[in-house]
Design a protein around this nucleic acid. Structure first.
Lengths: 149, 149
DNA sequence: AAAAATCGTGGGTGTAAACCCATCATGGGT
DNA sequence: ACCCATGATGGGTTTACACCCACGATTTTT
């Protein structure tokens, strides 16, 4: 009971503390796996956006993911360098560059999704299937609420 | 349905994604409040540890909170500068410095706890009392599991 | 008594994330 | 034609965080 490594109960009693700690390690577990491929979480997010919603102008990606446009440009630079996305200048509006997922991009996305699922399995290991559903439902409520205002 | 700000469903369907996003904003909401007092989350954690477990040598704090000893020294510098903790050299082992919570420290901790509770209420606003209990139980399971291995 | 280990402390480093700005190319409005 | 707004991009700054090393003072070990 006097474990010198025990965290203060007044902290671990806070749901928000548990939330931020578990979220942080989940995030960094996945980030660690991505790093082995020299990728960051944003690469995954960009690929997911292109897959879920189809081709985007870069500014559209920036708005959707709430990232600075210049950062999107850098991420796409890396993805395009590896042939994961095609960047073509929009003939209708030659300022815009439309990013499209390539087959290689789709393949990479599938791998990253698999990594994410694996990490999720690891993190949620102590929960039953029912409990995982509960957790997802609860977090979705919290997340959508704080995305609104 | 084609909200240009909508996040990729393949991301928001991931419980771990929701976990890290909600955790991150909860963390930064509280950090923002603390920043108004020129404090960081670690100040709260240190005060909580001293309150929950009594006086610590600095190294003990470092072990308990899994923080680098030199960082603990800096945090205690600031807390002691404001009279929130006393640092006295241990007469039995004059290398050690024992940190103890002062009354002012206890008062500050109470305020920070109140801030944390307020943020938690804000974050968990969309959940009923039952649901909050469920969430806490689930997160505790996840957290203790990943603290073990 | 000499050597090795420990504690606190100051002064760093590395890195990642978010942000900001200037610029060039283009488009739209008047 | 001209002016202003917009998109992409390169090159930054800032901030936070974790980490690490070296040193002086002390204690422990041999």
């Amino acid at each position: 009971m006097d474990d010198p490594q025990a965290l203060p109960p007044s902290l671990t009693a806070l749901t928000t503390y548990l939330l931020s700690r578990t979220g942080k390690t989940a995030r960094s577990l996945l980030a660690g796996r991505f790093a082995e491929r020299r990728l960051r979480l944003w690469h995954h997010a960009v690929l997911a956006a292109l897959s879920d919603f189809g081709p985007h102008a870069q500014r559209e990606l920036a708005v959707r993911l709430a990232v600075d446009p210049s950062d999107i440009a850098k991420i796409l630079d890396e993805l395009a360098g590896d042939g994961r996305v095609d960047r073509v200048r929009d003939p209708a509006d030659r300022r815009r560059v439309t990013a499209t997922l390539t087959d290689a991009g789709r393949a990479l996305l599938a791998e990253l999704d698999a990594e994410a699922a694996a990490v999720q399995d690891e993190v949620l290991a102590p929960l039953s299937t029912d409990e995982r559903d509960q957790l997802k439902t609860l977090l979705t409520k919290v997340f959508t609420h704080m995305s609104e205002d």
